[in-house]
Amino acid sequence: METFEIVEEITDQTVAASLHALREAVDGNEITIRLPYNGGGSVDAAIELIEAVKDTDAKVVIEVDRYVISAAAFIYLWFCIYPEAHVQARTTGEPAILVYHRPRVIIDDHLAFISDLTADAPEWDTLSEFTDIFDQLFDYLLAACGYTDQNENLYEYNQCELKHQLSHVRNGYYSNQDFVLPT
């Protein structure tokens, strides 16, 4: 069994060894990819890793520990929401916190989400594509947590109109806020 730890950040360099092992694997190989204390990073590298995990002949474990943010949370949640027979997504046994948000770019020390840009911005096409992928995964995650269109209906309580907790979660995410999920 081979184990790869991708600590702190998802980049082309930090995923390179695991990509190589996944692509060279044969039936019967077992590969564990640990994402401990990972603050996220490159969506391109995360998607490349997901595709390699999906395409490999090895049995794969995606393991998170303590906290995983952004692109690292995306990798883990991908295999929770879109399970593959040869892939297991789990924690190391310790509680972990996932922080998931819409993709963003930094432009001259300023944070930009897709809603901040216009279609003629150079980053638009890539960020739009990534945002669509992240949003779809988030919507499936909310559905798995019990969110339905009915959750948008206001609930009358003691002359007050209340929103379901998952409506608040959805509104926060689509307002470019972080979604925090304990495992």
Score class of each variant (00 low, 15 high):
1 M>W: 06
2 E>T: 07
8 E>W: 09
8 E>C: 05
10 I>Y: 03
13 Q>H: 09
14 T>P: 01
14 T>A: 06
19 L>A: 03
20 H>F: 05
26 V>F: 13
32 T>P: 00
32 T>Q: 05
37 Y>D: 07
39 G>N: 14
41 G>I: 08
44 D>V: 14
46 A>Q: 06
47 I>T: 06
47 I>Q: 15
51 E>T: 11
52 A>Y: 02
58 A>D: 10
72 A>F: 03
74 F>S: 05
86 H>P: 03
87 V>I: 11
88 Q>G: 00
88 Q>N: 09
95 P>F: 08
97 I>G: 03
97 I>V: 13
101 H>G: 11
103 P>Y: 12
107 I>N: 06
107 I>Q: 10
109 D>M: 11
110 H>W: 08
110 H>G: 06
115 S>K: 06
115 S>P: 00
117 L>E: 05
130 F>R: 13
131 T>W: 02
131 T>S: 12
132 D>M: 09
145 C>A: 15
145 C>P: 00
145 C>H: 13
152 E>D: 14
154 L>H: 12
155 Y>K: 14
155 Y>N: 10
157 Y>T: 02
161 E>T: 03
162 L>E: 09
163 K>A: 12
168 H>C: 07
169 V>R: 00
174 Y>M: 08
177 Q>E: 15
181 L>D: 02
182 P>W: 05
183 T>E: 12
